[in-house]
Design a binder for these strands. Structure first.
Lengths: 223, 223
DNA sequence: CAAACATTCAATAGATTAATTGATTGATAG
DNA sequence: CTATCAATCAATTAATCTATTGAATGTTTG
């Protein structure tokens, strides 16, 4: 590899960064660390990776500044580094989710003709809800559902959808939603439902946007 | 408030994405493509990489959806894909720049004692400006400077700084600034100035933030 | 101080990724 | 149709990255 034509500054730095982020184990570690400081041992068991290997990945992350470590007794605790790390991770996830949707659309298009997965706007949803022939389906995990959801929504997490599909009415239109705009759970849900012959759409903007728009939210009281 | 321990899906997808972005050549290609559609041949010469190799990198990028291609006569033109690609790249660059500053601070600290590069706030700057013993130094490229800058600022782009350092007074404090918060030009400028024995600080938030705060901006009339 | 423990280091074999070469495909022009 | 050009493919070699092992370091505990 001979000398590279240096164009914009930072390409090398960004590439290094990309390489560090380009490993599922490390991303996993980062995510656990983002929730709070963890010891190497703990991280190893959380990620199901050997301690030595975990330690090495952590050191890659540290070299990139993505994590910091401090000693606490016998343990070394790893915490998140400084700077816009979470923002960066969020934007990567957002693109990945967008991409996933794009691919799902291609799949669904080829099966269902021109029936796109584009998604209903909040306004369109409210019109249909007023007409009363729509079932709202929240496909997020139960914990999230309990913390707040759209009024009257059913909750079936995507991973349970195959087994619980009989809980859904076949004579009404189903509108699935999840977290935010690039939430993919709903795309997968719609794909699965349509494959079963149900009429399904997805809400373009998810729960976060609904709530952000100041619309009504339903909560179950915490005991 | 509601971040729940969910074993996050998409780690694999994001890792793949990271790996694709983890190569300086590909980032370079992406940046050129972001400016507009380009043929493979053109991209190869812009990046100083063989055509065959360029083609392969482009195909990695296409598999990740980051670029699209279409045939135009004998040439195949590559353009940017859809989705929040630029946002993602911007956030990566932002973190890389933050990190660069962090590292520069370490270097400067070890040379200059505890004299941190942390950066003055806009308020602190205004106080010092009122006292009158501060020279404002805009280290952005001239084009940007002409489009608007802080009142009374001098303009010496970083790359010219070594040669034009004698334009700066040695008896006053210098405050360097550039675009925004994570702008690195100012950090490098301050490091360089201090190495020459001048008193220099940087403005924590750059021009964008100054303007955003509704403060006065100076422009040279366009002829 | 020695023992127990958590973590890191160093060396290595196995996997992935990158760049080079020469052949192949697709499109245009004479 | 053939020659030419742009781009891609396929195969090879070189370089880099990953996981595993066992030894070494640094801390606490008895």
């Amino acid at each position: 590899m001979n000398d590279i034509n240096i164009q914009s500054p930072f390409v090398t730095e960004i590439a290094d960064l990309g390489r560090i982020l380009g490993n599922a184990h490390r991303l996993n570690l980062l995510e656990h660390i983002a929730q709070g400081e963890r010891s190497v041992e703990r991280l190893a068991e959380l990620s199901n990776v050997s301690v030595a290997n975990t330690s090495q990945h952590l050191q890659h992350l540290r070299r990139a500044g993505l994590v910091q470590s401090r000693r606490m007794g016998k343990h070394v605790l790893y915490g998140l580094g400084t700077g816009p790390i979470l923002k960066m991770l969020a934007s990567l996830r957002q693109y990945a989710e967008h991409r996933h949707i794009e691919i799902q659309e291609l799949v669904t298009d080829s099966l269902n003709g021109q029936n796109r997965l584009e998604g209903l706007s909040v306004d369109e949803l409210q019109i249909r809800l007023a007409e009363g022939n729509v079932v709202l389906l929240d496909v997020r995990p139960e914990e999230e559902f309990l913390l707040g959801h759209l009024p009257g929504a059913l909750n079936i997490p995507v991973e349970d959808l195959q087994g619980r599909i009989n809980e859904l009415p076949t004579d009404r239109e189903i509108v699935a939603y999840c977290r935010g705009t690039y939430c993919v759970l709903s795309v997968d849900a719609v794909t699965a439902l349509r494959a079963k012959g149900l009429t399904a759409h997805r809400l373009k903007n998810g729960f976060v946007d609904w709530k952000g728009a100041g619309l009504e939210v339903e909560e179950f009281p915490k005991n």
